[in-house]
Design a protein around this nucleic acid. Sequence first.
DNA 1: TTGTAAGCGTTATCAA
DNA 2: TTGATAACGCTTACAA
Lengths: 324, 324
Amino acid sequence: MITIDDVARKAGVSIATVSRVLNNLENVSEKTKMKVWKAIEELNYKPKILASALARHKKKFKVGICESDRLIKMEKENISPEFYSVILTFLEKIGEEYGIEFCKTKLLTPIECDGYILVGGDTTKETVKYYKDIKKPFLLLDHYIPGEKVNCIVTNGYDGAYYATNYLIKKGFRRIFHIHGPLNSYGFKGRFEGYTTAMHQANLLPKYYEYDDVKDNMEDVIEFMIKKDGIPEAIFASNDITAMRVIRELKKRNFKIPEDVSIIGFDDILSAKEFEPPLTTLKVFKDEMGSLTAKRMYELLIGHDTHPVMISLFTKFIKRKSSI
Amino acid sequence: MITIDDVARKAGVSIATVSRVLNNLENVSEKTKMKVWKAIEELNYKPKILASALARHKKKFKVGICESDRLIKMEKENISPEFYSVILTFLEKIGEEYGIEFCKTKLLTPIECDGYILVGGDTTKETVKYYKDIKKPFLLLDHYIPGEKVNCIVTNGYDGAYYATNYLIKKGFRRIFHIHGPLNSYGFKGRFEGYTTAMHQANLLPKYYEYDDVKDNMEDVIEFMIKKDGIPEAIFASNDITAMRVIRELKKRNFKIPEDVSIIGFDDILSAKEFEPPLTTLKVFKDEMGSLTAKRMYELLIGHDTHPVMISLFTKFIKRKSSI
DNA sequence: TTGTAAGCGTTATCAA
DNA sequence: TTGATAACGCTTACAA
């Protein structure tokens, strides 16, 4: 393995000088630069990123975690502490290993940082433009905006929903309904499409209803659903919170879960396992999501592979008692 | 930042011992283990991956680059040397920095390695099963199989094709045709869907023709196309090789490019710029594709974030002379 | 403009 | 069973 030492020796300079040349620092004479580049070429030397990163780590990065008002409201109301907070815990943990320090800040009026992480499904095109103009690295966590070429980390909702819906179809159900969150959120949109695609492919009629965690009332949704389309054999909800509220509402109306209606959620939040009945769901790997986010941000910060990329995590189907 | 030194000091042992505890090595007394874990907890210490990886790097990884017969044939016939070979060059370069050594091998009879990279669009479900059974990390490069939860690095063909098609639509064209490669390849499929979606949204009728780089004859395809649907105003081809052959064929028939027909390719292979006329195309970031592949493989090898992920790179529209 | 040398936070070899 | 200490490959004061 060729190292910086080899290059230095060959070029007849010190490793410090080689490092300067590699990093395009000022204060290197043209003549020396030439010598060094020649040695680099001849030896076919490739700098070792890991070592470089390690050495660089005295300089800490500061990254803002930008939350929307909606998200802050959700946190206050304890709606999703089990979801984003888990992701963020891992984000911070891994970030620290990479020399990144995080601070929470507002989505539209962020404090000065080296980079930004925009959390959640309600980041808009305008917000993205705002961050593009700042000219600092940023990425969307748990969201993507079609047509925008931006770095993002998401869950593959389509794949998970498609799987879950087919699971219900294979169980022999035909009246499978879907209750979904706002479709401007990429996550909900993907799950919606996975559901409808699976239904269409099985020649079944998709029936779906919008329900917003933050502002809608589940009682109304269920009432509307039953009035309009009757009793389902199964419901696929686009997250666990929704699934739990559906179950609560159905129980009130004396339906047995899963005997009368099978319910499947999405996310596998911590309380999904403890719920009564325990929730069948699609597990989102929140730990890896946080960890991948930290790593991607690190890459952007040190200027490697900065061309935008979508990282999409597959889910895992977890069978519990809320469904047959 | 808490380091191994802090832990060692707190626990009253040496850093060597802390390292042993962290890595679950034998030869540490239970009592010492307890002390060390206690210190780790109390300090909330997180090992630094980078440092660990750096120090560990004496042990090199060996990773197989697995190519299908089809790909090997393409390479022999010089069809795509500009595409995969560029990606693989970067893959090897970055891999080396991470202590990975690559070797080419056959898709279905790979030699023994620590991990495998399955290259190209004709990896099948069966092949994936074969590699799953080996129980070693592997990932698909430039391909994905719907329904399979496997690690893969792909190009976002949908986004690029959608953009290109809309570009042509905005130019006022209505007769926009698409010539695509085999749709079992995820890349071609995405581009196909991007094209058809854009056409549908503009209330235009998609017209498309399959053409296989390796075995089909462009003359036949163009003849069939014209006979069946007449002369297009523009053609979006699902890769540059195809686009070039389309142009060659149209020129033979005395069409002027782009005056009579606008052509857009995909990939931005090296020769796209030199072609006559230079090709308008969607640039695939082959360097970053290789680099991200190497990094992802490294993560899998050291056992971090091993849950399957799809990494999808956005393309960039490059306007040259083959289109208006 | 260049070189020396002290880190960066681990792992691994030896000796105790 | 443990501890000292030399790597690992690079960056960056500080000195020359």
